[in-house]
Design a protein around this nucleic acid. Structure first.
Lengths: 206, 206, 206, 206
DNA sequence: AATGAATGAGGTTTCATTCAT
DNA sequence: GATGAATGAAACCTCATTCAT
């Protein structure tokens, strides 16, 4: 039952790691195959051997990144909580994940700018949907339990949550400059996470 | 007493317009000087005559974009409203501006990804600060009038407002795909704007 | 008998002066029409009006430079001296001229590097020949008077004189660096001139 | 125990050879990367691979040229001669070297015109100094042996030797035209070398 | 599987020259 | 005669990709 793990898997992983870093820092157009190979410590030719070309490498990086994200979101489901605590839990996990994975935030941003066409829709949905469903499920639970307002638009809540998390990290530079405060500092991040919990719960609650 | 209007100003404007489009669509690295010149209908050489090089052109485009933004924000101040209505007003103007200026949203996104270092901080602040101050002012007014909670963190409100507006438009592609709904449609946008008004006011109000 | 001197003569002179400086500093290929126009304080278009194109401008600069040189060499003839003093006189005047006209030295150097084909031979000769004839004349006078050796090759003397003067100034940079002494300093230049006098006269004299 | 001789060394040498020819013929500004690549029979891209850019290529050409020169000057030291014969020897070797290496003469000329700043002083000195020291050493030997005048300025002798050799070849075009004689013909060159020997020894000798 | 060298298309930039007023 | 704007050819340089070992 043992899976054969050829030596080249190491090379492939080194390339993926290096490529994630490069693409997330410079975007698809700014990224350089030379840099990726150099930082991975492998011969440039290997990239073409294993990934065919730059675009394909990019797609594979994206896929691996989405998978990592989906993995983290599985944490959501692991506990049995009151709806409002479940929501809080989601926000906190989400903020922690984004804080811990700046490459993820950035590469998704580039992807959005390039009109999000590198990943097939179906793949995207299969990755993201469970988390979205979970949130809607908790909101509905809250409604059923009479804790949350009945007329809340679930979609808006999902969008809000995504926006809050993502936007904080993607605009952190500009906002920090203008507000003269390092919004990337850990204490600012958790303060923000709590604020987001509060404003959402506050809105949801009767 | 005749005002001198050199012909080259027309060329300069054509270049700026074309460059905004190109940079906003492809980002700095993806943008092509050839395309910019072709779309502007001017000789490529003129870009170097008036803007020195690609990087400088990019900076000038950014500056002009910020200025346009600041201009739009001046609308905020034009009316005399109750605090909660002033906030609503800001959100609506902001959403309308972002909806009307997708290039603005995109180029700022690229800029954030490139660590927002193309515009000197001071310039950035002088453009953005008035709007921020206005929001804080209205929140404070609401507190003084006993309408808003006294312990609200003004900074968090500003950040929320920025995030809400920006993030909605920058992630519109991915979110539309996943939610299977065109979030860019006018009616969805105004629905969203109203939701953002509601959630903010709801949080602020005692 | 008054020669009409149109206003444009001023422009022409400004261009020639600026062009001499530029060509002598950067050579034909390194020189920029833009720089020449800017430093002359005239519109670029004027250069084409008066000189047709870059190459022609270069030729006219060269011609004017040769004429200036020939003019200076006319000083040689102005005195009545013993042959050895006449030779000394030539060396001193020559060194002084080269020292005072670094642009001349440089532009002739560029010209030599470009195979000296910008000036028609005949023109060159009509300018240079008188000085050469004068030197030969003085050497012959010395021979006749029994002061100089009879078997001296006049051509070699002329070449030596040219070489000594020219080479000193054209290699002044490299030699100064290596000898750790500023060979361009006035006192070094006159020391050199005297040395050249000495070595030549010494060779010529019986 | 096999010495690794990477294939690229051949390419590098072809580029250097072609570049020397091009730079020496046209100077830095007139030289074309395209020509260099074409004449070297290599892909243009290779020049950037191995030399980074035009300026750097130029510097490496210069360095290699200086080294070749220093190599040739090592011949000076190989014999045990009387001072006057040693000086003659130097002059002859020097003339032969310059005659055999017109590219060397030319490129150094361009270099002087560009103010000799492409090669670090220290490097220049370490290459040139031995020859200079050797000449001074022989002049001093002659003085000690009572053959040469005691008050001769060694520096002037070195400068003379350099000037004589260099200037003859750099002004060969102009002088040939004026004197109506091909000074580049082998017999003229050796006649000149002997003349230079004579005039120098004549000056040095008591 | 791995490597160093090579390639060619295409990108940015420069510059002599000309147009239009 | 003079000016500012425009032009296009060609220069330098970059980069994804492939060849040959």
């Amino acid at each position: 039952m043992k899976v054969r793990k050829p030596k080249s898997q190491i090379t492939i992983n080194k390339i993926l790691t290096s490529a994630l870093e490069e693409f997330s820092e410079k975007g698809f157009f700014g990224a350089r195959i030379d840099s990726i190979a150099a930082n991975a410590g492998v011969n440039k030719r290997m990239i073409y051997e294993h990934f065919e070309n730059k675009e394909n490498l990019y797609k594979e990086v994206l896929t691996s990144v989405y998978e990592k994200c989906a993995e983290s979101e599985r944490e959501f489901f692991s506990e049995d909580l009151r709806p409002q605590d479940a929501i809080r839990n989601v926000v906190r996990i989400y903020f922690k994940f984004l804080y811990d994975n700046p490459d993820f935030v950035r590469i998704l941003m580039w992807e959005n700018l390039n009109n999000a066409d590198s990943i097939p829709v179906q793949q995207l949905k299969s990755i993201k949907a469970p988390a979205f469903e979970y949130i809607k499920y908790q909101v509905n639970r809250g409604k059923e339990q009479g804790i949350f307002k009945a007329d809340v638009d679930n979609g808006q809540i999902v969008v809000s949550l995504m926006n809050f998390g993502f936007a904080y990290f993607t605009n952190i530079h500009t906002l920090s400059l203008i507000l003269e405060k390092d919004l990337g500092a850990p204490e600012e991040v958790s303060k923000r996470a709590e604020f987001v919990c509060d404003i959402l719960i506050n809105y949801l609650t009767k």
